[in-house]
């Protein structure tokens, strides 16, 4: 699904990744790698430890399809810095292989506010052409690409409601859905997202066939 932000021609992929063809740039947000490890470390349940594998599988498929020169991970790439350190060797090597031959930027997020000890650059934010990539949206910005909120949106048709992770965009900004397997979503109807996005904002639902709808807002 193609759209424009501050003059940049962008494509929202059904996987939840953003593709900027002009710069050969693929951007994914909120991978939350190592989430199951972090939960177990803190005395919580032992969730199926396959989410890092699954997230990387999907990322690898997007990389193979788009062959980007530049990859931007938009923060919260790891569930915490400990999870980045505890990454099994196999998955660490896998990330290194994915990084080979391309520029790779880790934008810092609230979950991973420091170097993650893997190849690639570690940045607070990234400015490129008309766009600024940062983890959490800031007020009064133009051409801002961010993540953090894990937006999702729902459509109901014929008595059935479908809710999916979604891109939200208006004339000023774009918020990416969470790409990680173990991530939940924040409804677009939430107060935070409604305050952040302009009245004419759109939501693009992820899925086999991404579809755009007017961003669902608070009723009443």
């Amino acid at each position: 699904m193609d759209f424009n932000l501050a003059g940049a021609a962008l494509t929202a992929l059904g996987s939840g990744a953003l593709w900027w063809r002009e710069h050969g740039l693929l951007c994914v947000s909120d991978l939350h790698l190592g989430k199951s490890e972090r939960i177990a470390r803190r005395g919580g349940a032992a969730l199926p430890p396959y989410e890092t594998r699954d997230t990387l599988n999907r990322l690898a498929a997007d990389l193979a399809a788009t062959e980007p020169r530049h990859v931007v991970c938009l923060g919260d790439s790891f569930d915490d810095l400990g999870a980045a350190q505890a990454l099994p060797d196999e998955e660490r090597l896998w990330i290194l292989r994915l990084q080979a031959g391309r520029r790779w930027d880790w934008i810092e997020g609230n979950h991973d506010p420091g170097p993650v000890g893997l190849g690639g650059a570690h940045l607070g934010e990234l400015r490129l052409g008309p766009l600024t990539f940062r983890h959490i949206a800031e007020p009064r910005q133009r051409g801002e690409v961010s993540g953090h909120y894990h937006p999702k949106a729902s459509v109901s048709a014929r008595g059935r409601s479908l809710s999916r992770p979604a891109f939200l965009f208006d004339s000023d900004r774009l918020i990416l859905p969470a790409y990680g397997t173990y991530t939940g979503g924040l409804r677009s109807r939430s107060e935070t997202l409604c305050n952040l996005m302009r009245a004419d904002a759109c939501a693009i639902l992820t899925g086999p066939q991404p579809v755009a709808i007017p961003m669902p807002r608070k009723a009443g």
């Binding site: 193609d2 939840g16 999907r58 004419d200 759109c202 639902l205 992820t206 899925g207 755009a212």
Partner: peptide, 18 residues
Amino acid sequence: LAQLTPPPSNIPRRRDGG
């Protein structure tokens, strides 16, 4: 809002279901 969005691009996509 319809005029904002050109027809879907044809880049292959992953992630089933959603």
